[in-house]
Design a protein around this nucleic acid. Structure first.
Lengths: 219, 219
DNA sequence: CCTTGAAATCTGGCATATCAGATATTACAC
DNA sequence: GTGTAATATCTGATATGCCAGATTTCAAGG
């Protein structure tokens, strides 16, 4: 979960982050066309960094760029968002599996303490994020991490602050996961991690679905 | 498996494709620095498209761009390449699961005929690619497809032509997969597809490992 | 000899102008 | 009215040039 609230250094990164969020949150509707010069004007910069930000989003499947023709928002439906979370769950499962196989005793101890730090933390969201980051990193797979990054980017940036009520179940799942990793049971770790993330995805799906109904009712 | 031998239209796409291949195949070694102006000169274009191509590769985790400092090849070790294939296997498994749940009878019939067309085809590689593409598309998940694309891009472009001896096992696995999908057994489809791709990954791993030993022996 | 800091230099980020493919428009023939 | 081809226009792609942050160099001070 990189770039978490980190609004990057370069104009390009900031623009990509901002535009991504507008698409993911539905401010920019699928099918709508984007005017490069208009965005340029809004951001008060030149076209180059905006253009490059949009190229980035096109690789993420959020917009479609037709050479010398136009830029169209593809966006993600709420079904897509749930799919994305399911993919994230699959990736997290694989990460947990590899972590179980590759983690060192020191890292495991560290991971446990990071997990314990979530309880009673003033900033549960960040603490939780740290846990998952440590977990993923322990997989020692830079390749896998790039995929996790992509999946996390497609999650609305404010999502992780939305469901505090999930906290109890989440903590229990963390404990079970750590237990499996401690036993070096990769298969179990994979299943638990996958379910864990999937649960969060289902909650997101319900929220998005409800919001879509609202928007249809009172546009 | 998109962009298969499609060397894109724009300079940026061609450059990205070419540079990616040099990194993946090891022509550009990890740790080596890239000179933007040098590459520009080689491609006979301006810096903009080359720069954008490198930005793309940085998102794929293949190079590291330090703002106003330098561009360094990260590359992928052969362990990374195997990891990448394992990720692809995981994604393919998920795609097969969803395909089993979402495929229409028409699509299934079409998929069977595409599978049959592999046997005795003059171009087995392309026929095989078509099958996997159809399989993935039937999952009806644009999100998942973007991830599959990313994973496929990190596979050496000539890899799929390297191991004809795998053909028999491959065909048997395709049949088993189609059978599972026909039964709408998502769980089985996922397992079979995952194993299927993993087998290919293992072969790649052995090949890369052998090549690395060669290079260490006679550099 | 090591530290420090200022200047030279290197490098990518950004701004701007121009180019070319794609699309829309218009005029004309039928 | 319909089809078509010439043309005007729109839009991203590319070429250049300049700028600022990062790094290196090197000399002065200790």
């Amino acid at each position: 979960m990189p770039d978490f609230k980190a609004i990057g250094g370069t104009v390009r990164q900031r623009a990509a982050s901002e535009l991504r969020d507008r698409i993911i949150t539905g401010q920019l509707r699928p099918g709508s066309r984007l005017d490069l010069d208009l965005i340029t004007e809004e951001f008060g910069t030149s076209r180059t960094p905006i253009r490059e930000a949009l190229i980035e989003l096109s690789h993420e499947g959020l917009v479609s760029i037709a050479p010398r023709s136009g830029i169209t928002v593809i966006g993600i439906t709420w079904e897509d968002a749930v799919d994305n979370f399911a993919v994230l769950a699959t990736l997290a499962g694989k990460a947990a599996e590899w972590t179980a196989a590759r983690i060192t005793p020191d890292e495991l101890a560290e991971l446990r303490s990071v997990a314990d730090a979530i309880t009673g933390s003033a900033d549960v969201v960040t603490a939780n994020w740290r846990f998952h980051r440590a977990l993923n990193r322990a997989s020692r797979s830079p390749r896998l991490l790039t995929f996790v990054r992509h999946a996390v980017r497609a999650v609305p940036s404010n999502y992780f602050e939305l469901f505090p009520e999930q906290e109890q179940r989440s903590l229990a799942e963390h404990a079970a996961l750590l237990d499996a990793i401690g036993r070096r049971d990769g298969r179990a770790a994979r299943l638990i991690a996958e379910e864990h993330v999937l649960h969060a995805g289902e909650a997101l799906g319900e929220w998005l679905q409800a919001r879509e109904r609202e928007q249809l009712t009172a546009p």
